[in-house]
Design a protein around this nucleic acid. Structure first.
Length: 745
RNA sequence: GCUGCUGUAGCUCAGCUGGUAGAGUGCGUCCUUGGUAAGGACGAGGUCACGGGUUCGAAUCCCGUCAGCAGCUCCA
C-alpha cells in the first residue's frame, strides 16, 4: 500500500520472473514494459495485475493501483487472457462496422467467448452470411485507421443520463446491473464524441491496429437475457487472433474436426442409422455399431462382477403411480413421451386438458369460442364417464384446466420409463433386507425414453431413447462414503481404459432458490457433503456447480467435449436420500430395527448412445482392436490365391476374430484402400508368395507394412492386443524403421 | 420449443430467371490375373422429403407438415 503522504512514492512491482521493479507512482503497464525493454513495449497489449490475491487485466495505459504483481500480456495467441482481450476489442470493432452499415442497429452485449466473440444486436433486418464480407471490409478500414481505445468514466448518475438520452433500453439495463459507483465507456478513437463508443467495463488492446486476423463466422438468433419471451436478437459470431497464421490454423482445425463428426463417420462406417419412419431421436444400432456397444458392455459387466453387482432386467414401461411416487411424473411431464392413460375416462380427460390448455394460450374472441366448446365437451365427458371433481357447470377456463389437471393426477395409466430407478427400487423392495445384504447393487443396461425438444436432438449424443449402463446401490450410512469412492474410481477406470482423459468433473449441487428439488434440507446437506468428500478423496480436479443436481440428489458428473467443442455429460454418480424415503424402503439393522437405506445411482458410460457417439469422434472411427467391428481384413493379390485366402479367413474366424474377406477381381491397391477407409485394423494381403511359404503379409490401416508372418503368430499377436485393450502394432517391431507406431487418436 | 438455413440416385453434390432429371463415387456384369493409396468397358438406380396451391406446364414459385443442420433455450 502506498500512503498518500509518502514523498518518494515508489511502487513495488513484482514480475513473473520473481524480480521486483520499483517504479514511480502513477506508472502504467506500458511504462513498466518500456523499462524492461523496447521489444516488450512493442508487444505489450495489457497488464495482468494481482493484488491481495485477486487478479485483473487492465489497459496498458492505466496507472498501477499500488504495489502489485504484474504480468505483461503480449500479443500472443497462446495466452488465453491476451486472446480474450483481443477478441473483446474486435467485438467493438465489429459493432462499429455493423452500426455504420446498419444504422438502425441497437447494440446489446458483446463478450469474448471460448473461441471468439459475439455481439448481440437488435436490428429488424436480418444480417445474412452475404453481409459478412461487407462487415469485414468495414472492420478492416477501422483497423487501418489505427485508432486507440480510449477509456473514460462517468458517475453512475451521469452515465445513466447519457444512456437514457441515447435511448437504448439494453445499455441502460446493462448499466443498472453493473457494479460500482462509476461506469466506464470506451471510445474507439482519440476523442469522445468523434468516434464509436460503447458502455464497457474493458479492458481493451491499446489500438485497433493490434487486430490483425479476424473472421465473422455466423449469425444466429438469440433472445434478450436468454428469455424466449423477451426481445429476439441477432447474435453475430466472430473470432480473432494476433497472427493470421493462427486464424488459418484454427479454421483448418475446424474443418478437420468436422470430419470426425460421429454423424458422418457413423454413416460412412455403418455404425448406426436414424429412420424418419421410426422417429426422430431414436437410434437404430447397425450390426457394426452393435459390436462396439456389446464390447463396451461386456467390459463393464466384467468390472461390475468384480465389484459384486448383480445384473437384472426390467421392462421399458411402468405404471404412472410408480412415477408419481418417485416424482418423475408429473414434474418432468414436458420432457416425457405422453402418458398412456388406461381408461376411456383418462384418455378423454387427457385430450380435453390439451385442448383447454391450447385455448388458454389464445386470446379475445378465439378464446371465448374455444372456452364454450371446451365447456360443452367437458359436459359430454362427464355425462359419459362420470363427474370430474371440482368441475361445476359455470367453471371458468382456468378453473377447468386446474380441475382436469387434478383429475388426471389419479387416473391409471402407463409411462415409458424416463429412468430405471423405480424398477430397481421395486426389486429391492420385493423382499425384506438385512443390513448383512448391503450394499445391494443392481445393474441393468436399461433403455429409457425422454421427449427431448426437437431442436436439441443430435445424432447419438442427444436422443429420445437411450440405454443407460445404470446401477443402483442400496447402502447403509456407514457404507455410503466407501461405496461412493469405489464408484467414482470405477468411472475413472472406465474412461481411462478408453483413453478418454480430457474430461472435467462437475459436482452438481442444489440451487436452494429453486423448487425443482424434493426432500428435506437435512437429507440434502448430508448428500452434498457425501459427494464433496468423495470427489475430494478420489483426487480428481472438480468444480462445484449450483443448480446442477438431480431433483432427488447431488451428483458427480464426468463431462467431455465433442469434436466441435460442445460439452456432454457422460458418467455420473449420484447420492439419493429421497427416493428410499418416497418408496419407504427399509432394511433391518443389527439392532433388529428398520432403517432407511441410502441409494447411489451411477452410470459410468452414462448413455450407450452418447458414449459411443463421442467415442467415434475420439477415435475418428479408428477403434482399438478390442472394439473394432472388423478387426482383420483378408485380401487376395489375385484370384489364384482365393483358396489360400479362404483358409486364412476360416482360421481367423475360428480364433474368434472379426474378419472380412475380399476375393473380388480388383487389384490389391484399391482393395487395401477400401479396407483402410473402413478403418479395419489390420489388412492381411495374400498372394502366391504367401500361399507358397504359408504366411500372410500384415499391414496396418495407416498404410504401413508390418511384414510376412505365419498365421499362428498373427493370431497370437491379435489376441494379446485385444486382451490389453490397447492400440498396437501387433507386438511386431515396425520394419526397417525405428519410428514407433503412434496411437490412432 | 424458438429463429434462420437445408431436403434431388446408397453416399457427396450440380441442376440459372418454370419447359421430358445430371455428375462423381458406390453397386452389378464383363474384360484384365494383378504385389500394396483407386485399370478399362457396359449397365441398373430417382413419386426431386411429404401434402396442398399458382400455372398450359413445377425439382424450380407460394403455403403447410415432417426431417436434418447451426445457434438460442432446455436436459431428472
Amino acid at each position: 500500500m502506498v500512503s498518500p503522504c509518502s514523498r518518494r512514492a515508489l511502487l513495488k512491482v513484482r514480475l513473473p520472473d520473481g524480480n521486483t521493479l520499483e517504479v514511480a507512482e502513477g506508472s502504467t503497464t506500458a511504462d513498466v514494459a518500456a523499462t524492461i525493454g523496447p521489444g516488450l513495449a512493442r508487444a505489450a497489449v495489457a497488464g495482468h495485475i494481482t493484488r491481495n490475491g485477486s487478479g485483473q487485466v487492465v489497459d496498458l495505459n492505466r496507472p498501477l493501483p499500488g504495489d502489485c504483481e504484474l504480468r505483461i500480456l503480449t500479443a500472443s495467441d497462446n495466452d488465453p487472457d491476451s486472446l480474450s482481450l483481443l477478441r473483446h476489442s474486435t467485438a467493438h470493432v465489429m459493432a462499429e462496422a455493423i452500426c455504420k452499415l446498419f444504422p438502425e442497429t441497437k447494440l446489446v452485449y458483446g463478450p469474448p467467448v471460448e473461441d471468439g466473440f459475439y455481439y448481440d444486436i437488435d436490428l429488424p433486418q436480418s444480417i445474412t452470411p452475404d453481409d459478412f464480407t461487407r462487415i469485414e471490409s468495414e472492420m478492416s478500414r477501422i483497423i487501418a485507421e489505427d485508432r486507440p481505445f480510449l477509456r473514460y468514466e462517468l458517475s453512475r448518475e451521469e452515465a445513466l443520463v447519457k444512456l437514457r438520452d441515447e435511448g437504448s433500453r439494453y445499455k441502460i439495463d446493462n448499466a443498472e446491473r453493473a457494479e460500482g459507483e462509476t461506469l466506464s465507456f470506451y471510445v474507439t478513437g482519440q476523442q469522445r464524441g468523434q468516434h464509436f463508443e460503447d458502455l464497457c467495463r474493458g479492458p481493451h488492446v491499446p489500438s485497433t491496429r493490434v487486430v490483425k486476423a479476424f473472421k465473422i463466422r455466423q449469425v444466429s438468433r438469440s433472445f434478450y437475457r436468454g428469455d424466449v419471451n423477451d426481445q429476439p436478437l441477432q447474435r453475430v459470431y466472430g473470432t480473432a487472433f494476433y497472427k493470421a497464421s493462427s486464424l488459418k490454423e484454427y479454421l483448418k482445425q475446424l474443418e478437420e474436426a468436422k470430419k470426425r463428426d460421429h454423424r458422418v463417420i457413423g454413416k460412412a462406417l455403418d455404425l448406426f442409422t436414424i429412420s424418419e419412419q421410426v422417429g426422430s431421436g431414436l437410434v437404430l444400432w447397425l450390426p457394426k455399431g452393435t459390436i462396439i456397444r456389446m464390447e463396451l458392455q461386456n467390459f463393464l459387466t466384467e468390472e461390475m462382477k468384480k465389484l459384486d453387482y448383480q445384473m437384472v432386467m426390467t421392462p421399458h414401461i411402468g405404471q404412472l403411480d410408480l412415477y408419481r411416487t418417485s416424482g418423475h411424473y408429473p414434474y418432468y411431464q414436458d420432457s416425457q413421451y405422453p402418458a398412456m392413460f388406461e381408461t376411456d375416462r383418462g384418455k378423454s380427460i387427457q385430450g380435453l386438458l390439451q385442448l383447454a390448455q391450447r385455448v388458454q394460450s389464445q386470446s379475445g374472441e378465439e378464446r371465448e369460442e374455444g372456452s364454450s366448446r371446451v365447456a360443452a365437451m367437458v359436459a359430454a365427458v362427464q355425462e359419459a364417464w362420470g363427474d370430474i371433481a371440482g368441475l361445476t357447470s359455470g367453471a371458468s377456463l382456468d378453473e377447468t384446466v386446474d380441475a382436469l389437471y387434478a383429475a388426471l393426477a389419479t387416473e391409471p395409466g402407463y409411462l415409458l420409463r424416463p429412468m430405471n430407478c423405480p424398477h430397481h427400487i421395486q426389486i429391492f423392495a420385493s423382499r425384506p433386507h438385512s443390513y448383512r445384504d448391503l450394499p445391494f447393487r443392481l445393474a441393468e443396461y436399461g433403455t429409457v425414453y425422454r421427449y427431448e425438444q426437437s431442436g436439441e436432438i443430435s445424432g447419438m449424443t442427444r436422443v429420445r431413447g437411450f440405454t443407460t449402463d445404470d446401477a443402483h446401490m442400496f447402502v447403509t450410512a456407514d457404507q455410503l462414503q466407501g461405496e461412493l469412492l469405489t464408484t467414482v474410481d470405477l468411472t475413472r477406470r472406465v474412461l481411462s481404459t478408453l483413453g478418454l482423459t480430457d474430461y472435467r468433473v462437475r459436482v452438481g449441487l442444489r440451487d436452494s432458490a429453486s423448487d425443482k428439488y424434493v426432500g428435506s434440507e437435512e437429507n440434502w446437506r448430508k448428500a452434498e457433503s457425501a459427494v464433496r468428500i468423495a470427489a475430494n478423496e478420489s483426487g480428481v480436479d472438480f468444480s462445484e456447480e449450483v443448480g446442477e443436481a438431480c431433483f432427488y440428489g447431488p451428483k458427480i458428473d464426468f463431462v467431455v467435449k465433442d469434436c466441435i467443442g460442445r460439452s456432454w455429460q457422460l458418467g455420473t454418480v449420484q447420492v439419493d436420500y429421497n427416493l428410499p424415503e418416497r418408496f419407504d424402503l427399509t432394511y433391518v439393522g443389527a439392532d433388529n430395527a428398520p432403517h432407511r437405506p441410502i441409494m447411489i445411482h451411477r452410470a459410468p458410460f452414462g448413455s450407450m448412445e452418447r458414449f459411443v457417439g463421442l467415442l467415434i469422434e475420439h477415435f475418428a472411427g479408428a477403434f482399438p482392436l478390442w472394439l473394432s467391428p472388423v478387426q482383420v481384413g483378408v485380401a487376395t493379390v489375385s484370384e489364384k490365391s482365393a483358396a489360400y485366402a479362404r483358409e486364412i479367413h476360416e482360421g481367423l474366424k475360428s480364433a474368434g476374430l472379426r474378419v472380412e474377406l475380399d476375393l473380388t477381381g480388383e487389384k490389391i491397391g484399391p482393395k487395401k484402400q477400401r479396407m483402410r477407409d473402413a478403418k479395419i485394423n489390420y489388412i492381411l494381403v495374400v498372394g502366391e508368395k504367401e500361399a507358397a511359404e504359408r504366411t500372410v503379409n500384415v499391414n496396418d490401416r495407416e498404410g504401413r507394412t508390418i511384414g510376412n508372418k505365419p498365421l499362428g503368430a498373427v493370431v497370437e499377436a491379435l489376441r494379446s492386443e485385444i486382451a490389453s485393450k490397447g492400440h498396437g502394432e501387433l507386438g511386431f517391431p515396425p520394419p526397417g524403421t525405428s519410428e514407433r507406431v503412434r496411437c490412432h487418436t
